[in-house]
Amino acid sequence: MRKNSVIKLRFIFIYAMHTSLFSIAGFSQTHTIKIVELRSYTKNESIGANLVLAPFFSEKVSGTIQSGLPSVLEIELLVRDRNDKNIGENRIIRRISYNIWDEKYRIDSPDTSLFFTLFADLQNTCLLLKSTPFITRNKLDENHLAQIYVRGTLRLISSSQSRKLAGWLDASAQAPETISSDESSSGFRLNFSALVSLFMGNSPERRTNAPWQQFPFPINGRDQ
């Protein structure tokens, strides 16, 4: 009996850990952002990236921002050497909001806040982004081009700055206690079909998980 319990417990753990590792999926209230252009720049002995984003202010996105609810733009950057080893990473986060009472648009980054009166100015600023320098020159091999992987998402209506786990995974676990029975029980539920379609099919979760885009990352970027 005890052996059975141990085997079952082990099975639960293996199953759950596999599932959790494979299901770091996109938050469904996200929109994929396409990066049109990426150029490196150097500052002292460090290198950063300037990005040009494809326009993403659809009617849905514009309407949401203009009604006073904030969105969060997030760009992930990953530099890999010729052996495909990660040698540097960075994340650009911008919170885009509109104060309907002051009629001012606002972009917040971790260290600055920019204000605009025209929506067009906000759009233009959002489409040209600059990362902080995030990799030192000596980490890059001068004879070989490193590759930078980049992906962008817009989290439509977000109270949090960053959310890594998908909602359905986050909340899959325990149900609140009921009063129907005198014995206590605690468990978890997992939608197996959603999990399968996340990897095999064309599920919305899969679609909203932005694909990585790849650019060459030379170290001879312009000094800025």
Partner: peptide
Amino acid sequence: SPEKIEASWQLLKQTNFFKNVEIYTRP
């Protein structure tokens, strides 16, 4: 508020009635 929208999105998603749920607004 954003918190109420996120909570509603979570609750709708947890029902598993839907393949996709999106909540957005306009003025």
